[in-house]
Design a protein around this nucleic acid. Structure first.
Lengths: 187, 187
DNA sequence: ACCTGAACACCGTTCAAGT
DNA sequence: ACCTGAACACCGTTCAAGT
């Protein structure tokens, strides 16, 4: 089982960005971990923006597969939502990392346009999936209300991860999610 | 009305960090805006960490004054909470900026210890103030439940700002906050 | 007391040159 | 096809030198 250089770069870079952000990603540091020179990174990804956009695109695709899988494995909306908050939880459990697009959202003003586009796409995917779930379990809501509620859930979960990551305490995340559930923000 | 150099540096740097983050802050760019050389910034703030910590400390102090003022001007918890969400709204209205400590929380792993300490202090202040408000309007909750609920509110509001800032759309923030209120997360 | 130019090791990027 | 060394303009930081 070998991995081509491009995939190795993406795998290592994704972890670095999830930890230190887009601005915190260094081509020289990345190259050292991959075992090539920093100039060689540019052969695979001409600019840092190209790499950032590729990372966010892949991250969104992987997220979509996971979320689609969730809906196939169960018929219970409560299980879907629990699976949803579990993805964000796992990032924290794995070396206190953040959602790739959550951390890059904070750097939005510094992002090249091609990266912004993919970060926006990740948000759209999350809101769309959550709105679909709400159409099953909160069918009394109209479409606009579902979109609004889905966006609120996404924002709240990203916020919970952001604060818990600063605290370095997974129980902060768990308690916050539980509070959202009790309040009725999460179905 | 003159302003000494140190205060000028802090005022301009605060805006820069609220827009581009701690990593995005450049001493050379900052110096150019202030009208001195970048080496001179180091006279007032020996390291970037010293500047970042001073900014977060001042930001927390200013936030505290504002929040204390809110509680004195009214007896209505609903007005207090509305005033609370309004601070975060104003940052967005002012050039789509973020909460200084919210944006730095995303860069937590890159922050020097002295900056982390002040960012943590900002979180503590927010949670404490919110818990105090809850002790007035949700007095049936015990202390631990209030702390937990206060943290959830803070996380959700930071998340709403993060997502709305990426969208560049203030109505996203307004709708998300309103959804929190309807769901019962906000008192 | 406050500022500066020059140097240092870093950064992303480019490009001619290697295999 | 893939990689590299060297150069460029950037970065935070240091420090001897200026007023």
């Amino acid at each position: 089982m070998t991995m081509d250089t491009r995939e190795t770069i993406m795998a290592i870079a994704r972890k670095m960005v999830q930890t230190r952000g887009y601005n915190g990603l260094s081509f020289r540091e990345l190259a050292k971990e991959v075992g090539i020179k920093s100039a060689s990174i540019h052969y695979h990804f001409p600019t840092k923006g190209d790499l950032g956009a590729a990372l966010a695109k892949r991250y969104t695709e992987d997220g979509l597969s996971y979320l689609q899988g969730l809906r196939m494995e169960s018929d219970d909306p409560a299980v879907w939502v629990r699976g949803y908050t579990e993805i964000f939880r796992m990032a924290l459990v794995n070396d206190n990392r953040m959602c790739l697009c959550g951390i890059m959202a904070a750097e939005y003003d510094d992002l090249p346009p091609e990266v912004r586009k993919e970060v926006d796409g990740f948000t759209d995917l999350n809101v769309q999936w959550l709105a679909d779930v709400l159409s099953v379990c909160q069918s009394q809501l109209d479409n606009e209300q579902r979109q609004r509620h889905a966006l609120a859930i996404y924002a709240a979960v990203e916020g919970a991860q952001l604060i818990a990551r600063g605290r370095g305490d997974i129980t902060v995340y768990d308690r916050t999610i539980e509070t959202y559930r009790v309040a009725g923000l999460l179905p």
